[in-house]
Amino acid sequence: MDRTERYLRAGLALYTAGEYHAAHDPWEHRWLELGADDAETGGADSPDRRLLQGLIQTAAAIHHARTGNWEGASGLAESARGYLGGLGATHRDVSLDPVRTFLATVAVTPEAAERDDPVAIDFDGTPVDAATEGFETVALCVEALVEEYDLDEATVGRAIEYGRADLDDGRASSPFVSLLVDLVGGGNRALVVKRLGDHVDRREHRESGVEGLFDVE
């Protein structure tokens, strides 16, 4: 999986979880990186960048519709159609025809984005679910949610470090990994962060107790 796909899938996992505003964060991060690359080579926007911009504006249209900003939702839906219009039926394995159909409706009837379930954005035929994603994709989702909900950045950051270390050591049943997936899935995020904090405290206490065992005075 290359860098663009990782950020793309992270945003799609957040979108699938109903986090339409947070979904823009990984997409925008990679969109900005690709823009710098395009500027260096003197080229126009790449198809990957157009895809990401179209998805960002799709999620923004849904967000505005759900806050009652019909004009903003309609304008963003029309703009998103423009970015996605020059791409094929799929790009980067993302199914775009259903998205374009949805956007055409929202551009004319923005209330539809609030009244109806938003279009599922499929990757290789199915929506992206954080529960079945790799850890690095989940970590990107979590980082976006930390900013979205002002979660305890230090605790979550340490949990990501410990989860990554556990996987490197072959501990697939790491509580850090399972709780970080739960954090993306929704529910009581304050409780999930508290549980992560408890595990972080225990791990740090255990590691600090081991550090001095072999010191020689």
Rank of each mutant, 00 (worst) to 15 (best):
A190Q: 13
L213Q: 11
L191A: 15
A131R: 12
A59Q: 11
V177E: 03
I121R: 07
R195M: 05
R189E: 07
R100V: 10
D169W: 05
G125K: 08
T4C: 00
L55V: 01
E153F: 00
R49Q: 15
E133Y: 05
E133T: 10
G170L: 10
G11M: 05
T90H: 05
F123L: 05
A13W: 09
T58K: 06
A190S: 14
D129H: 15
D150E: 15
R66L: 11
L179A: 00
I160V: 00
D45Q: 14
D152K: 02
G68D: 04
E111H: 14
D169K: 12
N188Y: 04
L84F: 00
G186D: 01
Y83W: 12
V181E: 05
E114H: 15
T58R: 08
Y83Q: 05
R81F: 06
A59R: 00
H63E: 14
E19K: 09
A23Q: 04
V106K: 03
R66W: 08
P47L: 07
L183C: 12
G54Q: 06
R171V: 00
Q57R: 12
R203K: 09
T58V: 04
D182V: 01
E33G: 07
D168R: 15
P127H: 01
H63D: 14
R6A: 15
V181Q: 00
A120W: 12
C141A: 04
V99Q: 05
D117Y: 11
G43K: 12
A59D: 00
Y83V: 10
A80V: 10
L96P: 05
V106A: 01
G88N: 02
T109Q: 13
G35S: 09
G157A: 07
D122M: 07
D124A: 15
A190L: 13
D25W: 03
E40H: 03
A159N: 07
D25C: 10
A120G: 05
L145P: 06
Q57A: 07
E211P: 03
Y7S: 11
V108E: 00
I121G: 08
V177F: 08
V108G: 11
G35N: 12
L55F: 09
S178M: 04
A139I: 01
A17T: 11
G185A: 13
I121Q: 04
A159F: 05
G187D: 08
E19M: 01
S95C: 02
D38S: 14
V177L: 07
V216E: 11
G157V: 06
A104M: 04
R206N: 13
T67K: 15
G18Q: 10
V156G: 07
T67L: 13
D122H: 01
L191V: 13
A130G: 07
S46W: 05
R30W: 02
E143F: 02
V184G: 00
N188V: 02
R92D: 10
G125A: 03
A44C: 09
K194I: 09
L180V: 06
L55R: 11
A139R: 01
N69P: 00
L84T: 08
A165G: 01
E133G: 09
P26G: 06
L76G: 06
E143N: 13
D201N: 12
A120I: 02
P47Y: 04
G187A: 02
L191M: 14
L140D: 05
C141D: 11
A120K: 14
S74D: 00
T67P: 08
G163S: 01
V184W: 01
V128S: 10
P118Q: 10
R6S: 14
A10I: 02
A154G: 10
T132G: 11
E153V: 09
L213P: 02
G185W: 03
G75E: 13
E40F: 05
